[in-house]
């Protein structure tokens, strides 16, 4: 058995095509991004080597840290909202009527492109005839805020849109994972008199712990490099109050012609993601030990 399962040829055959692909298409750009990060380069003319100057500038760049703070908030927000997604998936997989239809409906938003989603949410938040403010006015609030123009409100407003945008993605994953649990296990617990809540907590969630861990990493890494809706809906504004790392990087590299600095931000973002992922793995690993 072990012999079959450690056949070097088969392993290479299975792994190499994919590995080759990401080494050339992802790692070459990563290495080059690191390289450009050491240069003064507008992306057009000659490059000059400046060592770590971009990084020392980065460390002191208050705008960068502001955007990094927003990215971290988003990561936290996304990670917490996983609980909600998981809850909905648990309900959808329990034996309730219409679950199948509901599930399909719940996943529809995820089909929309970010162009459509950005348009939709700009309409929802429109200061005078948007849905949110129409509703607020109808319940007697005279002067509802302009959500995307208010520096203190713009970030939470966009977070809500992002959480909504990704709901389908995570519900889909959780749903498939929960459906994968053998029915016999749940049936046995039910016969033993376990309540649905107990079944969810003691059986279902531990069984899909591996999937949950993966989604935590995906949610956090995905949030740290998030770009789409923020760029389209606010462009990082007003005055940087909704700027995140990726939009800041884009602004520097493509807006200000500072490709060297933009690359340094990109590379730094990669490092942040690495550290955070490592931390998550450490944290979830210890939890696992306690559980079992």
């Amino acid at each position: 058995m072990d012999k079959v399962m450690s056949n070097k040829f088969v392993i290479s055959l299975y792994v190499l095509p994919a590995l080759l692909l990401i080494l050339t298409l992802i790692y070459v750009p990563i290495v080059l991004t690191g390289y450009y990060g050491l240069m003064k380069w507008d992306g057009i003319g000659e490059m000059t080597f400046i060592g770590l100057e971009n990084y020392t500038k980065l460390i002191q760049d208050a705008d960068f840290w502001g955007s990094a703070y927003h990215s971290f908030l988003l990561a936290l927000f996304s990670a917490v909202s996983l609980i909600g997604y998981l809850g909905i998936s648990l309900i959808l997989t329990s034996k309730i009527k219409g679950a199948n239809t509901l599930r399909k409906i719940y996943l529809i938003p995820m089909l929309l492109s970010s162009v459509a989603i950005a348009q939709l949410w700009s309409k929802i938040y429109h200061p005078s005839n948007g849905m949110v403010n129409s509703f607020l006015q109808s319940i007697g609030i005279d002067n509802p805020p302009a959500w995307l123009a208010e520096p203190s409100l713009v970030l939470p407003a966009i977070f809500v849109a992002i959480i909504w945008q990704y709901a389908g993605f995570y519900i889909l994953i959780y749903y498939a994972a929960l459906k994968n649990i053998p029915e016999s296990l749940i049936e046995a617990a039910r016969i033993d008199g376990a309540t649905p809540l107990q079944i969810a907590w003691k059986i279902k969630i531990p069984l899909i712990a591996g999937v949950i861990k993966v989604t935590i990493v995906l949610a956090i890494v995905g949030s740290l490099k998030y770009f789409d809706l923020i760029y389209v809906m606010t462009g990082g504004g007003p005055n940087g109050s909704s700027e995140v790392i990726a939009s800041y990087m884009y602004q520097k590299a493509f807006g200000s012609y500072d490709f060297g600095y933009g690359s340094a931000i990109g590379f730094f973002l990669l490092l942040i993601c690495l550290v955070v992922t490592w931390l998550i793995r450490k944290l979830t690993a210890t939890k696992e030990e306690i559980q079992y």
Partner: peptide, 29 residues
């Protein structure tokens, strides 16, 4: 499913692929 020494590092290689922002890759690609 299979047993080989480098499986963990290779998995790590794939995971790092998640972390690069798309716009950093445009010019190199």
């Amino acid at each position: 499913r299979m047993k080989w020494k480098l499986s963990k590092p290779v998995l790590g290689l794939f995971m790092v692929g998640l972390m690069i922002p798309v716009h950093s890759t445009l010019i190199p690609l």
